[in-house]
Design a protein around this nucleic acid. Structure first.
Length: 204
DNA sequence: CACCAGGTTGACC
DNA sequence: GGTCAACATGGT
């Protein structure tokens, strides 16, 4: 019973295989993607990333100084493009002024607090950056995780669910990365548009 | 045409 | 403390 999470992980891994998230060439690209993917399909994020790359804007320094409207044009396809452009730029200035490597190298608790103080960076975005850009072990909770947990009788807010996963799982960056990715893969296929009747998690 | 997407914020009880 | 509209484009 206490192995419910590992059983779930094995099931998902068997069904979807290793995901090797986060797809990105640089750590800053992970950070940008983390903002852009908020409430947005990843395919649209990829298009925006390509747009930014083509204009050589995928670095803290360049994003920090470019005209806001240029960013908006590149990321329009991700929705919420005006506030995302502003938040990307504020974040870029912060990274550019303080040094991205130095920031990402800080201890988890300190890093998380700093990220959360940035406009547009909430718990999931902060933890995604910590897990996939800083490569430190924090479990990312997203809407699918909350839904799936609720389905199997585990209710709680972000912090409660995060503690639940981190307490029951061995502390491993790779495990946390793959598990979160698998949950999203599963959620996209089975949780969206009331397909709960086909749930394979409940058979665990 | 309605509903959803790898959330976060600020306003208002 | 918790709840909720607003943010906006693109896919199904």
């Amino acid at each position: 019973m206490s192995d419910i999470l590992l059983d779930m992980y094995d099931l998902l891994l068997d069904r979807f295989g290793l995901q090797y998230w986060w797809p990105a060439e640089t750590e800053f690209e992970v950070v940008v993607g983390a903002i852009l993917t908020q409430q947005t399909r990843w395919e649209n994020v990829e298009r925006a990333i390509i747009n930014l790359k083509q204009r050589s804007l995928l670095s803290p320094a360049s994003l920090a100084q470019v005209e806001r409207g240029v960013i908006e044009g590149c990321i329009r396809c991700t929705g919420f493009y005006r506030q995302k452009a502003e938040r990307l730029q504020l974040l870029s200035r912060y990274f550019s002024e303080n040094g991205m490597d130095r920031i990402l190298g800080k201890p988890v608790s300190e890093l998380r607090e700093e990220l959360l103080s940035l406009k547009g960076v909430g718990p999931e975005t902060a933890d995604s950056i910590i897990l996939y850009a800083a490569h430190k072990p924090v479990f990312v909770i997203d809407a699918y995780t909350t839904r799936i947990c609720s389905c199997i009788g585990i209710d709680g807010g972000y912090d409660v669910l995060q503690r639940y996963f981190e307490d029951l799982l061995p502390e491993s960056v790779l495990l946390y990365q793959e598990f979160h990715a698998l949950i999203v893969m599963y959620g996209k296929e089975y949780c969206a548009r009331k397909r709960c009747d086909e749930c394979i998690i409940l058979t665990v």
